[in-house]
Design a binder for these strands. Structure first.
Length: 308
DNA sequence: ACCGAGACTTGAGATCCCGA
DNA sequence: TCGGGATCTCAAGTCTCGGT
């Protein structure tokens, strides 16, 4: 492109909003000529205004900017991963009828071929752990064997699996206790095309009131109201709303961090409990062995020590 | 084997441009 | 003025490589 990109400044956006409010969308040249806005928008053409308004409208409709996507993800560990771009945002009208299905793109759910492979492996790991049904979790070898047995594995599969298990543990989708991996309660399987992990960990919530549904199902009335509200904002109101959104996001991040600390604490306690149980088992075994030794006739004990 | 740094890749969003 | 395509920018993920 010939001209360098000129990013829109907040005051330009505010002027555009105010101009649309005053003259209506589509009256781009009129807005540009209006002395009230021409100072701020002197560097913009009518087409620029049109493009920006289009972009802002898309953002306001919910499948928008990177920042929004990022905040959404930070706000909820339950943010759904998308397996492909076809995931739909279903808007529901007041009669509960589906009126529109649009592609929803969440920016931080970056869908790449490599990531798709990675996501599939994640699903397979979840499936393996679920299918193995080991009460204390499954170790890496068992998981690898299951996947190799049920599916297919590349030559460097062990290495890939190790890395993935580590990543999943770090992201708290899995809990690692004594080299065994369990699915974290807060983790749930991704929506996927093949359904290989359909039998993976149970969903933390189910039914129409789940948070997942709340995220995805937005009524048309809500969308319209939100859009109208945004369009009618003055520059000051827009600035205040932005500040509030930032504050909300920060609060949500703090909440998530607190939850992560809780999880770490719980994990440590689980490990401690496991260690205690192991020690108790060992003590019990030793006691039983001692009892057995004492119950043996002296010559048998002698024979045993001779043998050993 | 593990870790960290830097290069590379990828796709979504933002902006520019053109033809109807 | 509008719709849609082209291009650029950015952020996040992956890969590679050298050091420990």
């Amino acid at each position: 492109m010939g001209a360098p990109k000129q990013k829109w400044r907040p005051e330009e956006e505010a002027a555009l909003k105010a101009g649309v409010l005053k003259h209506g969308a589509g009256k781009w040249r009129t807005i540009l000529k209006d002395p009230e806005f021409s100072d701020v928008l002197h560097a913009r053409s009518n087409v620029d205004l049109k493009d920006k308004w289009r972009n802002m409208s898309v953002t306001a409709n919910g499948w928008g900017s990177r920042e929004r996507g990022r905040i959404v993800l930070k706000r909820s560990h339950h943010a759904r991963k998308l397996e492909d771009n076809s995931m739909a945002l279903t808007t529901i009208d007041d009669n509960d009828g589906i009126v529109d299905v649009k592609p929803l793109r969440i920016s931080n759910e970056r869908i790449t071929t490599t990531k798709r492979t990675s996501t599939r492996l994640e699903n397979l790991i979840m499936e393996a752990i679920t299918s193995l049904k080991e009460p204390t979790g499954s170790n890496k070898t068992a998981i690898a064997l299951y996947i190799e047995d049920q599916y297919w594995s590349p030559p460097n599969f062990k290495r890939i699996l190790s890395a993935k298990l580590k990543a999943l543990t770090a992201s708290r989708k899995l809990i690692k206790v004594k080299r065994k991996y369990r699915i974290a309660p807060s983790s749930f399987p991704e929506e996927k095309e093949g359904g290989a992990s359909a039998a993976a960990a149970p969903l933390p919530e189910s039914g129409p009131e789940s948070s997942r549904e709340k995220v995805r199902a937005i009524t048309k009335a809500q969308v319209d109201a939100e859009l109208a509200r945004i369009r009618n904002m003055t520059a000051q109101e827009a600035a205040m709303a932005a500040a509030q959104a930032v504050a909300e996001a920060e609060a949500a991040i703090a909440e998530a961090e607190a939850a992560a600390r809780e999880a770490e604490k719980a994990e440590a306690e689980a490990e401690e409990a496991q260690a205690f149980a192991d020690a108790a088992m060992l003590a019990l075994k030793n006691r039983n062995a001692a009892k057995l030794v004492h119950s043996l006739p002296p010559f048998s004990l002698h024979a045993q020590t001779q043998q050993s």
